[in-house]
Design a protein around this nucleic acid. Structure first.
Lengths: 103, 103
DNA sequence: TCAATAGTTCATTATTACTGAACAATGGAA
DNA sequence: TTCCATTGTTCAGTAATAATGAACTATTGA
């Protein structure tokens, strides 16, 4: 199971996390990842089925680069989990506070 | 004392607040506003003196439009305050949580 | 009236986001 | 093995957003 490249815990920045979460689409992705066993493929986590897959890929890359999610390749699909422990260690309470306000 | 235009409390959005705070410059502006009697002119609140004033004006506009600050014109200068009560009413704990992580 | 000060607005350039099209990689069926 | 469907990435072009210098408005004070 190949791991995609992610920033190490200490390289996660507040600005990165906030701007990743500032997009309603990405906020919904993170929320559904957390609500669903914390592990979904990119397609499963799509908030709106009509979205271009390049756009979806783009959003997942921003979530990965910000350190919010971790992606591993299993078979043909990518499995995504929210890096809850890393984010909580770096910015305690931030994730639960912000996600509490998501529609 | 003339009030500039601001969104009403209920029009403040999570995405707007998060993307306003996602910029390190604006985060510092908000932080210094809160630390300094909550009332400063734009120039006083500049994090980096070398910044172009049009850029500064741009950041203050984003902070205003997001509902984070309120600006009133007194004499030749603009006085800025963080709308602590409005933000806390709309998104409890968000402001203190995020600002707690600002450098 | 003139100059100084504080910000805004405008126009230009630079960066970032969105999307269709082509591509790579895996797994399953024939 | 070969072919094909599925999943997601990368690329290139366009659209939207950000940063800045220059010109402008408004207020104060000499």
């Amino acid at each position: 199971m190949v791991q995609l490249v992610h920033p190490s815990k200490d390289d996660i920045t507040l600005a990165g996390v906030l701007s990743a979460l500032a997009d309603p689409m990405r906020l919904r992705i993170v929320k559904s990842l957390l609500g669903n066993d914390s592990c979904m493929s990119c397609t499963e986590a799509t908030p709106f089925p009509g979205m271009a897959k390049s756009t979806l890929s783009h959003h997942f890359r921003i979530l990965r680069d910000s350190g919010l999610i971790q992606t591993s390749k299993r078979g043909v699909e990518h499995r995504n989990v929210v890096r809850v422990d890393d984010i909580n260690a770096r910015f305690p309470k931030l994730l639960e506070t912000v996600l509490g306000f998501a529609d």
